[in-house]
Amino acid sequence: MDFSNISRRRLLQGSAALTLGSALGARPAAAADTTIGFIYVGSRDDYGYNQAHAVAAAALKKMPGIKVIEEEKVPETDAVEKTMESMINLDGASLVFPTSFGYFSPHMVKMANKYPKVRFEHCGGLWTDKDPKNAGSYFGYIDEAQYISGIVAGYTSKSGKLGFVAAKPIPQVLRNINAFTLGAKLANPKATTQVIFTGDWSMPVKEAEATNSLIDQGVDVLTCHVDGPKTMAENAARRGAMVCGYHVNLSPLAPEAYLTGAEWNWEALYPKFLKMMASADGIPNFYRGGLQEEIVKVSPYGPKVSEQARKHADEVKATFLAKGLSIFKGPLLDNKGKTVITAGTERGQKDPELEKMDYLVEGVIGATS
């Protein structure tokens, strides 16, 4: 029987799972010293959130003694529990990366309690002391890279009107919009960012409509925070606008229109996790970092980026790498004129106030609700 087109979660359903499980003896795979499982909510070649993880998984495959197994398009339901159990029981996975936000609770938490000898790592920063100790969360301060993208966008825009296609007005998304805008204002104090929220993480039709609407209103540089930026990038380039990417390097989609972008750097982090896992201390249950920690990075500059923009962006990037930099500091007003950070106050990346950000800064045209 050919199992090549059957998903892992289906192998644990019905007699097919029982037959295969008996044949393999439900033993851990012996093909490698360490078997690692990656689970994606969408396609692993989406030029977005899922591809960023898949690129890192591909890097791990090149390491000796490592076997990587993957499954894509797994819903944020009990389907992911079946996938995790398959990876553990049929493939012998000892480290599992359920990468999507909705996989964490109750699904990953349930599996972590059921399999205490397996390590579970979730992307999103949701872990607390109440959760299983063999589970953890990690995430990156990608607003640092968005801040640098904003600098480049501010120098490049001829109209001073920037556009942001966003999924939902949650704190992480608002941080990215605000950081991008504050970066742009370093280059052009009069720059504005118009934001359109689509309502969900992957809505290609609405993302295309939002992109076209922004360009129709005079926006000439666009970026986004959605799972798959491909729609925004291709539509913007086709309309003659410039593009700043998100998640991964989008330059292949818009070679002439691409300026730079905010990327995840999981391919640098995951090998570190393997070393931590082998050490006495293990992987921290809650792990965060930005440019300095190599968890995020900035895309290479495109051909339309001026020397002035490159120089300024490189200087700011160097500051982040050397000693860190507070993006959010007072006096800072929101886009309704209210002071949200008082003069003399800085909000560092670990400041809990940033974790519950609910405002858009002055210069952003849009609403959070």
Score class of each variant (00 low, 15 high):
155 Y>H: 15
141 Y>S: 07
130 K>E: 15
192 T>K: 09
145 A>V: 07
142 I>G: 08
197 F>I: 04
165 V>P: 06
132 P>E: 15
135 A>E: 04
195 V>W: 06
215 I>R: 05
206 K>M: 10
169 P>C: 10
131 D>M: 13
133 K>A: 05
171 P>T: 08
187 A>N: 06
173 V>S: 09
166 A>T: 00
129 D>E: 13
124 G>P: 06
191 A>T: 01
191 A>K: 07
186 L>N: 09
124 G>S: 11
143 D>E: 15
139 F>H: 00
174 L>E: 12
180 F>R: 03
202 S>M: 06
214 L>M: 03
176 N>E: 14
153 A>S: 02
176 N>S: 14
170 I>F: 09
179 A>E: 01
211 T>E: 13
168 K>P: 03
133 K>T: 14
196 I>L: 10
129 D>Q: 01
180 F>E: 08
170 I>C: 13
216 D>P: 11
125 G>E: 03
185 K>S: 03
135 A>N: 01
131 D>N: 10
181 T>I: 08
137 S>E: 11
157 S>H: 04
177 I>Y: 02
168 K>T: 15
133 K>L: 14
137 S>Q: 08
144 E>K: 01
191 A>V: 02
174 L>G: 12
198 T>E: 02
161 K>M: 09
213 S>Q: 13
192 T>N: 09
170 I>K: 06
150 G>W: 04
208 A>T: 12
177 I>G: 00
217 Q>P: 01
122 H>D: 13
148 I>A: 04
153 A>M: 12
172 Q>D: 15
174 L>I: 12
145 A>H: 11
132 P>I: 13
199 G>H: 12
130 K>Q: 15
151 I>Y: 01
